[in-house]
Design a protein around this nucleic acid. Structure first.
Lengths: 100, 100
DNA sequence: AAGACATATGAATAATATTTCATATGAGTT
DNA sequence: AACTCATATGAAATATTATTCATATGTCTT
């Protein structure tokens, strides 16, 4: 992949709601309604966030009756989060990006 | 680190100029002037971009005469880029985020 | 096929990030 | 100390992204 497209990937994750969704899906597959309840956020926000995560194949979806069950593509995101954790411990004891 | 702060890290990288800078620094340490020449971008844009990369400790800087030599914190960023490459190959044969 | 529930989508608005440009700072040179 | 080169910074203007809200779509139930 060209260097000039990585930022599109990062852009998709540069959003606290999507990170919360990822955290929820890490625990287990969930329907949109379950995500709405657990995250206590408006349904359309969740749906918009899921749409972009889906477009990058960071989440997968399957229909189950009226519901859509979302699952996390763990192979990509979990290793990245681990590297960030490590980065934080090594380099960001009092890092600016943790302040907000 | 709490889930709610990862997005700050991603936000810092969700920018094509920063990705270009990372690509340049991957090849070797460079001064701001060298980055300006190679990337063919205005100096203040480069400096603003470097400032936020610095704040997250994704780049390091040392003074050398009048110049400031930037280097990449390779431990964090390179493994992440590799995972994204792998993701692309596995999941994004015709992925939307590569289109732009 | 009409109604109810679950989810997605579009478009206007609001929020946030980037660009631009003028200027400040700081180190070396004369 | 004045000048020059290298880089950083601030603030206004601009561009991009997220939120909101109304509504559309799709599946199941009756």
């Amino acid at each position: 992949m060209s260097y000039y497209t990585y930022h599109i990937f990062f852009r998709n994750l540069a959003n606290s709601l999507k990170i919360r969704i990822i955290a929820e899906l890490k625990k287990g597959d969930k329907s949109v309604t379950q995500l709405v309840k657990n995250i206590e956020t408006e349904q359309s926000k969740i749906s918009h966030a899921l749409a972009s995560l889906r477009h990058c194949n960071l989440v997968l979806v399957k229909q189950k009756g009226k519901e859509r069950i979302y699952s996390l593509n763990k192979k990509t995101i979990l290793p990245i989060l681990k590297i960030i954790d490590k980065h934080e411990k090594s380099f960001c004891k009092k890092c600016a990006y943790l302040k907000k």
